[in-house]
Amino acid sequence: MIFYDCSTAPSPRRARMLIAEKGIDVEKHDVSLAKEEQLSAEFLAINSGATVPVLITETGVTLTENLGIAAYLEARFPEPALMGNTPDDKGAILMWTAIAEGQCGLAVAEALRNSNPHMKDRAIPGPENFEQIPQLAERGLRRIDLFFDKLDQRLQGRDFIATQDFSLADITAFVLVDFARVVQKRVSDTHPDLKRWYEAVKSRPSAQL
């Protein structure tokens, strides 16, 4: 398998953590988004969408989305299970993964890409250019606050977000919550249960990569 990564971006970090949690050996290539290597002809031949992560499977299939990569790796390497063993757990994990993506990941992206001067005309990832909309940045910041509130409430009396075990939902939420620092949103004592969970996941070896 071949894994196209970017050490500074949140999306490939999600796949990188999952790969590490499962102890999988893959061939890794770093793609510098800062240098716009994702827009090079060489990389566009791999993924015309100009995004990372990308996983080339053992049979040569190209996977370019985190959920697709996670589903493949879970099926190919079922232990430890990170997407649930029971129907209820599988549903809960995908539900909370979707909540984290929609309510935190998209919010951080809105806030960052619509305010950072280095992302002028790059408000949406991919090969096409889109102008920044400042109002979306303001909305994104508010949505991050709401997600922190929701996750703090969810984690009261719980060690993990979706089920009783560490899962893809925890990886997704941790990476996106951690990345919110780029728009000056950080976990603090105002969210004690969120902070407890955040520090616990942060201490895992996979989070150090």
Rank of each mutant, 00 (worst) to 15 (best):
R196N: 04
Q184S: 14
H29N: 09
D189S: 15
A162N: 08
F174N: 09
I2E: 13
C104N: 15
M95P: 00
D178S: 14
S167F: 09
L168A: 02
Y4C: 04
T51V: 15
L82W: 03
P53S: 10
N47V: 07
A92F: 10
R122E: 08
R154T: 12
V31R: 05
A9R: 11
K90C: 11
A162K: 03
F130Y: 15
A180M: 05
G140R: 04
W96H: 13
N114Q: 07
I2A: 00
K22I: 10
D193N: 15
S7N: 11
A180P: 05
R14N: 07
T172Q: 13
L18N: 02
K150M: 14
A71P: 00
G140N: 06
P117K: 12
R196S: 06
E21T: 04
Y72I: 02
E42F: 01
W197I: 04
V52N: 03
L67Q: 07
T8G: 00
R16E: 12
D25Y: 02
W96M: 09
N114S: 09
T86L: 11
E79V: 13
G105Q: 11
K22R: 09
L67R: 10
G84A: 13
M95H: 14
T86M: 08
Q208N: 09
D121I: 07
V201L: 11
V183F: 06
C6T: 12
G23Q: 06
Q156A: 14
K22D: 05
Q208G: 00
